[in-house]
C-alpha cells in the first residue's frame, strides 16, 4: 500500500494546481497582453475623431448639422466654466438616485420573497411578469396624471425601469442557489434567518449585483425619457433644448455627459460591490490566468 506523509501529499497536490501566488511568471505574462489590447482599442476612435474634425474644418460637413469635436468640447467647457452644467447634472443625478433607490428597494423585497417562498412566487410573480410586458414608457401619461409633471412622476418612471432587472435577477439568483450548499447549511443546523445570512445571501450576491447594474443602466435610459416628456432642467433637457434651438453641439455634449455620468455611477456601484464579490473577482482573475497560460 502506498503510504504518504501529509507533507508529501501536499506536494503531490501542488502539482495539480498551485495557488495564485505560486505562479507569478504566468500572471505577469498574462498581464502584459491585455495592456497591448487596451491601447489597440484607442486606434479607431482616434482616427474617427481626427477624420471628423477634418470633415468639419474643410467644410464638407454642414456645421449646423454636424459640429466639429473641438466645437463640442468648447461648449462643454463653457458649460463647466459658467457652472450651468452642475444644475442640470445634479437634478438628473437626483432623479436617477431617488428612482434607483426606490426601485431597487421594492425589487429587493419582492425578489427576496418570491425567490425564497414558492407561495409568494405564485402570488406575485404572474402579476409582475404581466406588468413587465407593458412598455415602460406607456406608464408616463398615467404617472403624470397621478403624480404631476414634477419630480414624483419622473422618479416613479425611473423606479419602474430599475425594478425589473433587479427583481428578476434576485429571484432567479435565490432559486438557482446550489441545493447542495443549502444542505451543508442544514447539516450544521442552520435554518430560517441563519441559512439566509450564511448561505443564501452570499450565494445570491453575484446575480443581485448584475441586476443592480443593469437596473442602473435602465435607470439612466428612463431618466432621459422622463426628461424628454417635460422638464426645464436636467441633462435630458439639454438634449431637447439643443434640438429646439438647432444647436447640435449641445446635443452631442449632452450625449457625452450621459455617457460620462452613466459610466461613473456604474463604476461606483462596482466599487461598492467589490468587497462582497472579491471571491468572484479572484475566480475570474484565476480563469483569465489559466486562459493566458493555455494560450502562451
Amino acid at each position: 500500500m502506498i503510504m504518504l506523509t501529509s507533507e508529501a501529499a501536499a506536494v503531490a497536490d501542488l502539482a495539480y494546481r498551485a495557488p495564485a501566488e505560486a505562479t507569478p511568471r504566468i500572471a505577469r505574462r498574462g498581464a502584459r497582453r491585455p495592456s497591448v489590447g487596451k491601447s489597440l482599442g484607442l486606434v479607431l476612435p482616434t482616427i474617427l475623431l481626427v477624420a471628423w474634425e477634418m470633415l468639419c474644418r474643410t467644410g464638407i460637413a454642414a456645421p449646423n448639422l454636424l459640429p466639429a469635436p473641438s466645437a463640442v468640447l468648447g461648449l462643454l467647457w463653457a458649460l463647466i466654466a459658467s457652472g450651468e452644467i452642475w444644475g442640470h447634472a445634479s437634478i438628473t443625478l437626483f432623479r436617477v438616485f431617488a428612482g434607483f433607490g426606490l426601485g431597487a428597494l421594492v425589487a429587493t423585497l419582492l425578489g427576496a420573497l418570491t425567490g425564497y417562498s414558492t407561495t409568494y412566487r405564485r402570488l406575485f410573480d404572474p402579476l409582475l411578469q404581466g406588468l413587465r410586458n407593458i412598455p415602460s414608457l406607456a406608464w408616463v401619461p398615467l404617472f403624470v396624471l397621478w403624480l404631476g409633471i414634477f419630480e414624483a412622476s419622473k422618479i416613479a418612471l425611473v423606479a419602474v425601469g430599475v425594478f425589473f432587472p433587479v427583481y428578476l435577477n434576485l429571484m432567479g439568483g435565490i432559486q438557482s442557489v446550489d441545493r447542495k450548499l443549502v444542505e451543508v447549511g442544514r447539516m450544521y443546523r442552520l435554518r430560517g434567518f441563519g441559512l439566509v445570512r450564511r448561505v443564501l445571501v452570499p450565494a445570491t450576491l453575484p446575480a443581485y449585483f448584475v441586476g443592480l447594474r443593469s437596473g442602473l443602466g435602465l435607470g439612466w435610459m428612463f431618466v432621459l425619457a422622463a426628461e424628454f416628456m417635460g422638464a426645464s432642467e436636467g441633462l435630458g433637457f439639454l438634449l431637447i433644448d439643443g434640438q429646439m434651438t438647432s444647436r447640435p453641439a449641445a446635443i452631442i455634449a449632452g450625449i457625452l455627459l450621459f455617457a460620462v455620468f452613466g459610466k461613473a455611477t456604474d463604476w461606483l456601484l462596482v466599487r461598492a460591490g467589490r468587497p462582497f464579490l472579491a471571491w468572484q473577482d479572484s475566480f475570474e482573475a484565476q480563469t483569465e490566468r489559466d486562459a493566458n497560460a493555455a494560450r502562451a
Partner: peptide, 13 residues
Amino acid sequence: FAEALPQQLSGGM
C-alpha cells in the same frame, strides 16, 4: 492554504 479560496484548490485538496 488557510487563506486561499476554494477555487484555488484541486479536487483532492
